[in-house]
Nucleic acid binder design. Structure first.
Length: 568
RNA sequence: GGCCCCAUCGUCUAGCCAGGUCAGGACGCCAGGUUUUCAUCCUGGAAACCGGGGUUCGAAUCCCCGUGGGGUCACCA
């Protein structure tokens, strides 16, 4: 066997989230495409690397917890990075290009600032934020677009001297020539220099701005392909200008279409607040209905549509209002019970098309391994895409239904252990296994399972009987459903022998009905109502088995009692 | 408002680059069927080339102009 020497990657992509919240579904797609591109390079004989960097130059908004959560969400989705912060087996620094958090890289930037300053392509500027604001206001009053350009009275010697004693920022002197961006998705785009200004590259406090840090870090880390959302398109000429000023090579850019909500606007965490706010107003809430949110916070939030509640507070409120909030971050989808593979499959389809099947038909369902092999920049589309939750749900339902019973139980218990532990506790592994085949085709998300199995969790003497169902299946007919229930209990259940399991139960029902020369639906529906309270439930054998013989008989007795009382 | 991007069924999209197809698929919707309920499953159906000019024998496809939508204009990233 040939021992492979450590090889340099032939293509390097990167995902650089700023840790100021949970991972947005749009960010997940960006990461997914970066990952997929690197895997595609592997599949075509090269060596691809997907690296992860933490963009925390804005210290005030960044948090360690958020960074960790983003990493975990990515790992859960199956989007592993070959270089970056370590998380279990994922990450590492084989090429020694870290550290990965920009806040830990501050020392690296200084020499590049100096280089630019010496070359005269960067210069200090001394205007205060207030002065700048005034200049912008004035430009606006004259219906002009404000652009910062070097002052006419700028003098290098004086400015450099002034730097020593006075607060200042560093700005890049942008070249007069147009900047042409070659984008793999959008094609060639020309930006004329009069439309962007001498932007800030070093803040007053000495830290680099995003533009500067990105350009330097990407170059130092050897990033060859920058895949990012189209909202960054207008930043690209700045980055290109910076690269040429710094003598760096310009990476290959690919700007991907944006993901919108069903209203055609950018998906945002804010819409979750808005959904809850509308519901709260409709419910005529004036003060906080739950302990998690204090009164003044609630009142302010209710009035001001720019205010946002914390994640848990919002969830608690939604729970109180019986509301399902639109999922926006990866964690929302995870909590709702979507499978990671399905999420990746679905978001990959938002703006990208896989190759066709061998027989020429369209392909829509695929796994991560396929995506990694098949991904090509050329098949990224241009138009922005709306996020259709209904279709996602359908994909998830299909994926759930396609699982073996064993793996479904696995996925179901894993999810429940994390988000609905009472379900695991009260159902137990045995009844989960029993119910799994019935739950599987009936849910779109794992969280919907609770509705399907609620009857099994309820107390035997506390079944709420649906009045319509009582009328329809218990009181009508000759003999009535209620009488059949009594008879079935007496004939079949009272002296039940052997296992009380789906198969024998179904057989017993079939035999009992045959002896009376009637269809089995005649007794199945009354049983459903007595056991679950409604006419809708899993197959009757499973339904009865899940409740147990004693439970079934108790529920029948209770039902007979209640309905008889109504009748008299 | 300046600049930039985009435009095929309600939605995601194939087809466009290298003009000629009943404009295909998926989700959803509608109608049937299977099933002891529901769900699953099966069959069928309605549903789109933003508008106007050009180029061409021929335009969803190429060009121009409109219109519409979106992004972006910070010492945030």
């Amino acid at each position: 066997m040939l021992l492979r020497m450590p090889t340099m990657p032939t293509a390097i992509t990167r995902f650089a989230p700023s840790p100021s919240g949970s991972l947005h579904i749009g960010g997940a797609r960006t990461a997914l495409f970066c990952w997929a591109f690197a895997r595609h390079i592997d599949a075509t004989g090269g060596l691809g690397s997907f690296l992860l960097r933490i963009e925390d130059t804005d210290r005030a908004r960044s948090s360690e917890a958020s960074a960790k959560a983003i990493l975990e969400d990515l790992a859960w989705l199956g989007i592993g990075w070959s270089e970056g912060p370590e998380l279990g087996e994922i990450g590492g620094d084989p090429r020694n290009v870290g550290p990965w958090a920009q806040s830990a890289r501050s020392g690296l930037y200084e020499q590049y600032f100096q280089r630019l300053l010496e070359a005269g392509t960067a210069y200090p500027a001394f205007e205060s934020p207030e002065e700048l604001a005034a200049m912008r206001a004035e430009a606006q009053a004259n219906k002009q677009t404000f652009r910062y350009t070097q002052r006419a009275d700028y003098d290098r010697e004086t400015a450099l001297a002034r730097m020593e004693t006075q607060e200042h920022v560093l700005r890049l002197h942008v070249p007069a020539e147009p900047i042409v961006v070659h984008d793999q998705v959008l094609g060639e785009i020309t930006f004329t220099s009069e439309h962007f200004d001498d932007f800030v590259i070093r803040k007053k406090d000495g830290s680099p701005t995003y533009h500067f840090a990105v350009v330097v870090d990407d170059a130092l880390m050897g990033v060859t392909h920058v895949l990012r959302g189209q909202e960054h398109l207008n930043n690209t000429p700045k980055h290109v200008a910076l690269q040429s000023a710094l003598g760096f090579e310009t990476p290959i850019y690919a700007h991907m279409p944006l993901i919108f909500n069903d209203k055609g606007a950018k998906m945002s965490k804010r819409e979750r607040d808005q959904t809850a706010r509308v519901a709260a107003r409709e419910a005529k809430l004036t003060e906080s209905p739950i302990a998690e949110i204090d009164g003044t916070t609630f009142a302010a939030w209710l009035k001001d549509k720019t205010k946002q509640l914390g994640h848990d507070e919002l969830e608690a409120l939604a729970g109180h209002l019986g509301l399902i909030l639109p999922e926006v971050s990866v964690d929302d989808f995870r909590r709702a019970g979507y499978l990671p593979g399905v999420i990746c499959n679905f978001i990959a389809l938002l703006g990208w098309t896989p190759s066709k099947h061998e027989d020429g038909t369209d392909r829509e369902k695929f796994d991560m391994a396929f995506l990694g092999r098949d991904f090509e920049l050329g098949r990224i589309g241009k138009p922005n895409a709306r996020f259709d939750r209904v279709k996602l749900a359908s994909f998830n339902q299909d994926a759930l239904a396609a699982m073996s019973d064993e793996s479904f139980v696995g996925a179901w218990s894993t999810w429940a252990a994390r988000y609905d532990s009472t379900l695991v506790d009260s159902l137990g592994q045995g009844r989960m296994t029993l119910l799994a085949p019935s739950v599987k085709p009936r849910v779109k998300t794992l969280s919907e399972s609770r509705g399907i199995i609620a009857f099994a969790l309820a107390a035997h003497d506390a079944i709420e009987l649906d009045p319509k169902s009582i009328d329809k299946v218990l009181r009508k007919g000759e003999p009535s459903g209620l009488e059949l229930l009594r008879a079935f209990d007496r004939d079949a259940l009272q002296s039940w022998a052997g296992a009380f399991a789906p198969e024998p139960i179904e057989q017993a029902i079939a035999q009992w009905c045959e002896s009376r020369d009637m269809k089995s639906g005649k007794i199945a529906q009354p049983l459903r109502v007595a056991i679950t309270g409604s006419t809708v439930s899993p197959p009757i054998g499973v339904t009865l088995a899940a409740v147990g013989l004693d439970g079934v008989r108790t529920r029948i007795a209770k039902c007979v009692e209640v309905v008889a009382a109504i009748a008299s």
